[in-house]
Write a protein that binds this DNA or RNA. Structure first.
Lengths: 347, 347
DNA sequence: GTGAAAGCGCTAACAC
DNA sequence: GTGTTAGCGCTTTCAC
């Protein structure tokens, strides 16, 4: 057992290896009598097809590559789970790569995936331009992008409407009477960072408020870690230590939010009395935090599920034009902004 | 490019495929002149070895299988990251399986991993007995167990001293003057659940306090979800709604802690004034929670790193006897128990 | 509908 | 030190 091969089964069933293969693939009709003999032999020998040999011969494995830009980021956990769920359901297995926001690592993983003849790949690209994803396209390996677009790459992409969500969040703050709203954002090198900043700006402009550069703090580009907790802490501290402290804060990612929370606490400020807070990404503890935190929740599991389903459709031959799917985050109003206050917009 | 094979390189360099293979593997000496010619040809053609063909021929791939019992559990995130880091460093790639606390899925994944001829596997077993991990041993595939032991399976295992940690946590509560200490625990079907319960009991016994069964709530076995947040919520509610409410709570996993927090909040109780809290597992927000939460922090990244390193050593031929490594959690005293109070132990 | 045989791309004997 | 060759275990023509 374990090292039974197809020829053993064939011998036992008194047929050729071709017939065994045919029975197992189920793609051709086989005489029911032979079929039963084969199945019985498979059963008795405990035969398990060698997936490596199969991959070599078919020039394609049953592996789905999943390359994410930062496995530490809670955003990706549900994504990984979703991809894994869908893959498993369709008989695929997930090969994981953590690019760590490092283009070199991403490129390396993509090469490995190609070399492993994966059936398809889901990538959250670390860069927008000259992305190594092109190699996958060249190798004709189906590809789905998540979280970030790669302009010029004509492949299925699933993103979230960051601008809209950020705008809603900041408008929520404005409607609570806030005028000095600080922003703690991820690097503008990645689109998500830029878009969330854009949403912040849009919201202010919509109400005719000025954009005050000093209130906008943007983290350094990776790999130094734009989304790290300590970045959130540091940037928030800068904001809180300024002469004119903001009365509200918009944080651009979950990790930045945690850092901001730490800074606020260290300054002895309380939410929402001293400072209001809205953030991006919803994590399990946020509704339980005291006070619960108003956020834009990304449909991460959903993103992963759709990505995996689209990918598998492509693997199975779907030739339709590449789609871009834009998912809407859910704005979860909670208690970190205090009571709703009607404001006079004419002023 | 992409579909260049070893024979193309050989032709270009004017040598045999064997020589190309030898140059690339570096295991035999090759004439420097030929070597350079080969390297140049590899460069020019952009040759990348086909990992599938190599795996078939060598009867072993460069893949490390990682089968975890619940990917949703934050505990495993750092573990995955660590394994991925170490694997990458050694030229291996990680194949991920989420068993979802389901023995059937675990068995399935193990079969797939065997069939993919993975070089080794790291598993957090879903069951203690009749675990499908035995199949890996039979197939002579190196195996390292993490988080949970499988009695009778003589393989490297990395666990954490749950009993000790739980005991420390509960003693901390006792030293703060608490007598009625509730416990919200994961199922006793898994060792971690049992051991943490044991630690709770030990702490009480050590101080000569009675064990009150009504104060011990244990979640249902999987897959119904012993460690789920809603389980924590429900069990905590039972405790809080009892006639004689506990003055302190010990929660056995991170997810249970979140559920407990929600219940406490819903009852309008405040920590630590109305009820003290200590929990298992440290998550990034716990130090930032208000009040920050005293926990036993498992060295999850460390567990993953050691597991991966031991596995790779085994893959590379380490034949030394199987080890069991017991890591010590770190007790992180924070503010969820209030001020330290000296107590009279004679009483 | 079935079997014989070729071959996926590589590595490891084996002979020189 | 190098080339020739035989497979690894499977699927898929191609004849029948």
């Amino acid at each position: 057992m374990g090292n039974v091969k197809i020829s053993d089964v064939a011998k036992k069933a008194g047929v050729s290896t071709a017939t065994v293969s045919r029975v197992l693939s189920g793609k051709t009709t086989v005489d029911p009598i032979l079929r039963d003999r084969v199945l019985k032999a498979v059963e008795e020998t405990g035969y398990k097809p060698d997936r490596v040999a199969r991959s070599l011969r078919k020039r394609q494995s049953s592996i789905i590559g999943l390359i994410i830009s930062d496995i530490q980021n809670p955003f990706f956990i549900s994504l990984v789970r979703a991809v894994e769920d869908v893959a498993q359901k369709h008989g695929y297995i997930v090969m994981l790569g953590n690019a760590d926001e490092d283009e070199r690592k991403e490129r390396e993983y993509i090469q490995v995936m190609i070399s492993e003849r994966v059936a398809g790949v889901i990538v959250s690209p670390s860069r927008e331009y000259n992305d190594p994803c092109e190699d996958l396209v060249k190798a004709k390996i189906p590809l789905v992008l998540v979280d970030r677009r790669v302009p010029g790459l004509d492949v299925d992409t699933i993103v979230v409407n960051n601008t809209w969500a950020a705008q809603q969040l900041v408008m929520h703050l404005i409607e609570h009477g806030h005028r000095r709203i600080g922003a703690v954002l991820g690097t503008s090198i990645v689109a998500t960072g830029r878009e969330r900043r854009e949403g912040y700006v849009q919201a202010l402009l919509q109400y005719g408020f000025p954009i005050i550069p000093n209130l906008i703090k943007v983290g350094p580009p990776p790999p130094s870690g734009a989304n790290r907790e300590d970045t959130g802490y540091r940037l928030t501290m800068e904001l809180l230590n300024a002469k004119e402290r903001p009365t509200a804060l918009f944080t651009g990612t979950n990790l930045l939010t945690i850092g901001a929370l730490r800074a606020i606490q260290e300054k002895g400020l309380s939410i929402p009395e001293d400072i209001a807070l809205v953030g991006f990404d919803d994590i399990d503890w946020m509704p339980v935090y005291n006070p619960s935190i108003t956020v834009a929740a990304q449909p991460t599991y959903h993103i992963g599920r759709i990505a995996a389903e689209m990918l598998i459709a492509r693997i199975q031959g779907d030739e339709s034009p590449a789609q871009e799917i834009v998912l809407q985050p859910e704005i979860k109003i909670r208690r970190s902004c205090g009571q709703h206050v009607s404001i006079n917009c004419d002023k």
